[in-house]
């Protein structure tokens, strides 16, 4: 059961500024992204203009404003992965999915994100699909990996 927006908001004290980020995080954990309604309601609750709430939310990398795909792909762009060719891997994933980094496909199946470091520098380059790690991938593996997820829907 999904907790309703009001329910999540009511967990936090009204007008308390330091509750802003944890509140936004909770909403994102529940819904996967922040929509317009959430930003407006949070603004009312914290007693802060919604423009400011939106400004703060966009400042941080964690917050998303479009829903995640059914399969959320993260490509690591840390230094170690970069040295092992992650820029080519990212480009290949973009090409195979016909999707730019930071977006979700129109059918809502895949979303793609480049993250700064997943801390798996020993097994570079790394990619993560819905929490499942793919280590030491090469450009040839990409279409196979994605086809695998395509066929599971």
């Amino acid at each position: 059961m999904q907790a309703s927006l009001d329910e999540i908001i009511s967990r936090y004290k009204a007008g308390s500024r330091e509750a802003l980020l944890p509140l936004l995080q909770d909403i994102q954990t529940e819904y996967g992204y922040l929509n317009e309604e959430a930003i407006l309601k949070v603004g009312q609750h914290i007693k802060l203009p919604s423009s400011k709430v939106y400004g703060i939310a966009t400042f941080y990398d964690q917050f998303r404003f479009v829903p995640k795909g059914k399969f959320h792909i993260k490509v690591c762009r840390g230094t170690s992965c970069h040295m092992h060719g992650s820029s080519v891997i990212l480009r290949e994933v973009e090409r195979v999915l016909n999707l730019k980094e930071g977006n979700t496909t129109r059918d809502g199946r895949f979303s793609l994100e480049a993250v700064s470091c997943m801390g798996a520098c020993g097994s570079a380059p790394v990619m993560n699909v819905n929490g499942e790690f793919k280590t030491a991938i090469s450009i040839q593996d990409i279409s196979q990996i994605i086809d695998h997820y395509r066929s599971t829907i």
Partner: peptide, 25 residues
């Protein structure tokens, strides 16, 4: 425990303070 919402600059101590206070880091 505070979850940092992901910004490299928040490693800077005063930016981190701002982030805990619910402001831009």
């Amino acid at each position: 425990l505070v979850k940092g919402p992901g910004a490299f600059v928040c490693g800077e101590e005063t930016a981190l303070i701002n982030s805990i206070e619910g402001k831009r880091g």
